[in-house]
């Protein structure tokens, strides 16, 4: 087992979670709970892969994936903003719809052949930093570098800019935001769509960079839901979201590598000698998500902070409410 390789690959697969989680943080900060991440990621992955195969251009695929998921998220937006439906159920239907659409249109894609992937490169100066350079800046996909920029940018946007403040106002106290002349519905649509596009980007990052290909619903294998969980753990902070995503990425990779060596530290590796124990290893990310949620929820209860006050609550002008 080579720790540099594990962390290197972990950063790459964590980038997927990072995009999805930051997108969900933005949507939830504006008060829209979107549980449809899994569906949007799948539609993003499928559209991106299919576009890249048909036109031979991965960048076109990336745009297609983001556009498809963004459009899909607007369905959720319309139902939960204008029609004021229950956002949990709407998000679930979005998962069904996105999964169904991507399976129907992705039929046959898994045998479609080779595809041009997004480029990988090494950053000149930064890669010579000892240890860290090898993990973060050597031979990574371009999306990984985008991820490095996205998390701090989102943090700055949310906490230090005027539009970011408007977004938070809409998520915390829409009536007050409305009275200040902020277009509550408009802002909510905007961030629902941005959240959707980032989920699509996450999907495209899977199918065109991190683990290339289309494996029907196994392409995401629950990462959309893990991202929803990470959003709560991150307490709606993009930087915490990034840390959580990379940790999860590394964990997923570590689990793959644990079955390889004959010895772990000093002892015989039980996962090597009992290959079926690998199924227990595969449970770890999901069990870990539950653990992380428990930690996040207890912290939120203790500090009484975190959740945007109007999260999941539809806004009607002139009605009493938050």
């Amino acid at each position: 087992m080579n720790w540099t390789i594990i962390l290197h690959a972990g950063i790459a697969s964590g980038t997927v979670l990072l995009f999805a989680t930051v997108g969900e943080v933005l949507a939830e900060r504006a008060g829209i709970l979107n549980l449809g991440l899994e569906g949007m990621m799948l539609i993003g992955a499928m559209s991106a892969y299919s576009m890249a195969i048909n036109y031979g251009n991965p960048w076109l695929g990336l745009v297609a994936g983001m556009a498809a998921a963004g459009l899909l998220s607007l369905v959720h937006g319309f139902v939960s903003i204008h029609l004021r439906a229950d956002q949990v159920v709407s998000g679930l239907s979005l998962t069904f719809l996105g999964t169904g659409l991507s399976l129907v249109f992705g039929e046959g894609l898994s045998k479609a052949g080779a595809v041009a992937l997004l480029p990988k490169f090494t950053l000149p100066v930064l890669s010579s930093i000892p240890f860290l350079g090898d993990i973060f800046f050597t031979n990574q996909s371009v999306m990984v570098y985008v991820g490095f920029l996205l998390a701090p940018a989102a943090w700055y946007y949310i906490n230090r800019t005027r539009p970011g403040m408007h977004m938070r106002a809409v998520g915390e106290y829409p009536a007050a935001a409305d009275s200040m002349g902020i277009n509550v519905y408009g802002v909510r649509y905007l961030y629902t769509c941005i959240g959707g596009m980032l989920a699509g980007l996450a999907g495209a990052t899977i199918s065109l960079a991190v683990s290339p290909g289309w494996f029907s619903h196994m392409t995401t294998s629950g990462q959309g839901w893990i991202a929803v969980g990470l959003t709560i753990f991150a307490q709606w902070d993009p930087l915490r979201a990034a840390a959580g995503s990379y940790a999860f990425g590394a964990l997923r990779r570590l689990i793959l590598d644990l079955q390889g060596p004959t010895k772990l530290l000093l002892w015989d590796n039980p996962f090597y000698y009992n290959p079926y124990w690998g199924f227990f290893l595969k449970m770890i990310p999901y069990a870990f998500t539950i653990a992380v949620l428990v930690i996040g929820s207890r912290e939120a209860m203790r500090k009484r902070l975190g959740t945007p006050a109007a999260l999941g609550v539809p806004y009607t002008r002139g009605q009493r409410g938050v």
């Binding site: 439906a85 239907s93 069904f96 169904g100 659409l101 129907v104 039929e107």
Partner: peptide, 16 residues
């Protein structure tokens, strides 16, 4: 995917 797709649309149409 087709039955899942139709189920998703049904659920959306219902809550809408």
């Amino acid at each position: 995917g087709i039955s899942m797709l139709i189920q998703g649309i049904i659920l959306f149409a219902l809550i809408a």
